[in-house]
């Protein structure tokens, strides 16, 4: 063996030392977005187009709605994706850090309740029936379809749903069981919605729920159930029924939260938000979500222009319309 090349070794060591002792430099100017994985596809699409149109750099992370707010309230991000409204505890954190936020609803996400193709009895359901199937008290007791509605057969009832880390799960429990995170323990849970699709499509007595986009992609494998809405009609999920608000209560608005001070002071952030509002209708549809109507987007833009901070959700609420959200948000401070 030839003796060790000391020069080479020391060069490597020096480089290593150089890397380790690097002083921290100011970050390059980038519009930083983080938050919900549900909102991510929309923001990704907007960021992609924005970057092509303006050459301003945008990054989008996926820390979940809660994780996103943590970063947002530390001032690390300027825009936060959220699949649910900001919570009181998060508002408090932001307040402590002196960060004021603007709340903007950007599109609808709908939950679809799905059943097996061979299921010819459960065409429609009420939320009470869904509650009967999914509530904690049903655990081990409600095991057949006939126990939910008398006219349904004695087929075993098997449930498939997202795991407890998902915002979809939070929303479903709030809207159906009327208590956040309360659910029976004996169902097949998966964070991967594709697993739920496989489960329900292979099980005649199966029922599950997930985001509308998954149902749209798997229409050939599954059937959607019409859900009884507030006015007493049974409504199937779809672009039209979600946009006109008749598919409720299983559709919810998605949000972005803006750092108010940054929007005011940084022209790049301002440009990004304006671009977002201008293109979100078309882009959200393209990635599988349901946009608001034109008047609603106009109202959101106006709300944004007033730079009104605060949230409409001083207390948790389900089924607010865009108009209501904006009015309550405007009256909040």
């Amino acid at each position: 063996m030839k003796p060790l090349n000391l020069k080479k070794l020391s060069a490597v060591a020096l480089l290593g030392a150089g890397i380790l002792s690097m002083p921290t430099m100011a970050a390059v100017d980038i519009v930083k977005v983080d938050g919900s994985s549900t909102v991510y596809p929309i923001t990704e699409a907007v960021a992609e187009e924005f970057q092509i149109a303006t050459r301003i750099k945008v990054t989008v992370g996926v820390s979940g709605t809660g994780g996103g707010f943590k970063k947002f309230c530390r001032g690390e991000t300027v825009v936060s994706n959220a699949s649910r409204p900001i919570k009181l505890s998060e508002i408090k954190k932001c307040k402590e850090a002196g960060i004021k936020f603007i709340e903007l609803p950007i599109a609808y996400d709908a939950l679809s309740v799905v059943i097996n193709k061979k299921n010819d009895w459960a065409k429609d359901m009420t939320t009470q029936e869904l509650k009967k199937m999914w509530e904690p008290a049903a655990q081990g007791k409600i095991t057949k379809w006939s126990q939910v509605r008398d006219s349904w057969p004695e087929t075993p009832l098997r449930l498939y749903g997202p795991g407890a880390d998902s915002g979809t799960f939070d929303y479903f429990t709030e809207a159906v069981i009327e208590e956040s995170k309360a659910i029976r323990g004996d169902f097949t849970a998966s964070e991967d919605d594709n697993v739920l699709v496989k489960g329900v499509s292979g099980d005649k007595g199966g029922i599950g729920y997930f985001g509308l986009a998954y149902y749209e992609e798997n229409k050939n494998l599954l059937k959607a159930v019409a859900i009884k809405n507030a006015t007493g009609d049974f409504v199937l999920p779809g672009l039209k029924t979600i946009m006109d608000g008749s598919y409720n209560p299983l559709s919810r608005p998605l949000f972005i939260y803006l750092n108010a001070a940054m929007v005011e002071s940084d022209p790049k952030v301002k440009k990004f938000v304006e671009f977002y509002l201008k293109h979100v209708a078309e882009l959200s549809k393209e990635v599988g979500y349901v946009p608001f109507n034109e008047q609603e987007y106009a109202a959101i833009s106006n709300h944004y222009k007033t730079l009104q901070t605060g949230t409409a959700y001083k207390k948790p609420e389900i089924g607010l319309s865009v108009k209501q959200i904006l009015e309550m948000s405007a009256a909040s401070e």
């Binding site: 390059v28 991510y40 970057q51 750099k57 945008v58 992370g61 820390s63």
Partner: peptide, 15 residues
């Protein structure tokens, strides 16, 4: 890597 805050969408390269 996710814990320390890696991004998901980034459409430019580092310097």
């Amino acid at each position: 890597v996710i814990t320390i805050g890696a991004l998901t969408f980034i459409a430019f390269l580092p310097p």
